[in-house]
């Protein structure tokens, strides 16, 4: 087993998926899953809030994976596994009927899969960035500046700015979005 894992350790996810789909060797799938197992455990903990339930869920998601990965063509395994894990936990919550429906207006975040594109090398854009930062709300401006320009962590931002640590992430996410809208208008 260890031998197989060592062999698989450097291969890309997609190659392991094809190997599993063609041969059906579960050791390959186990090696692939264990790359993300600790993340899956964290996601399950977030939704289920109980270590025993999260433990069971991680194993059940692996069993789901054996069936689903044979049928589905997966281009980007990590994203697919995240959705699979999240949906699995949500189904558990629904079965247990412990979902409470509260509107959450404070912790707004962008759901898109953000990815970095090529860097734009234009000084004029930097100028517009500064103008746009100034146009942000006070909280968003402060959060964006401290996080991205001063490289402060949430804890430091909370202590220097007196902002609630739960809201900082939302200010950063929404600030980024507003910056993007503003930059698109000015450029």
């Amino acid at each position: 087993m260890t031998f197989i894992k060592n062999i698989e350790s450097n291969k890309p996810d997609e190659e392991l998926i094809l190997q599993f789909q063609s041969i059906g060797n579960l050791s390959v799938l186990a090696a692939l899953y264990q790359r993300y197992m600790e993340l899956v455990y964290g996601v399950c903990l977030k939704y289920l809030k109980n270590e025993e339930d999260a433990k069971d869920a991680v194993i059940n998601i692996y069993e789901d994976l054996i069936v689903k990965l044979k049928k589905h063509q997966v281009d980007y395994f990590k994203g697919w596994l995240y959705q699979l894990s999240k949906n699995h936990c949500l189904m558990i919550l629904r079965k247990k009927k412990i979902i409470s429906l509260y509107p959450d207006t404070e912790n707004m975040q962008i759901s898109d899969n953000l990815h970095l594109e090529e860097v734009m090398n234009k000084e004029s854009q930097l100028n517009s960035l500064h103008k746009c930062i100034e146009q942000l709300t006070e909280e968003q401006r402060q959060a964006i500046t401290l996080f991205y320009l001063e490289k402060k962590c949430y804890k430091e931002i909370a202590s220097t700015s007196n902002m609630d640590i739960n809201k900082i992430k939302s200010y950063i996410q929404n600030g980024r979005r507003n910056l993007k809208i503003c930059m698109d208008k000015t450029v």
Binding site: L114, E118, V119, Y148, L149, R176, R177, L179, M183
Partner: peptide, 9 residues
């Protein structure tokens, strides 16, 4: 920051 903003969807 600029590149992060540029990539924001």
């Amino acid at each position: 920051l600029q590149s992060v903003v540029a990539s924001t969807n």
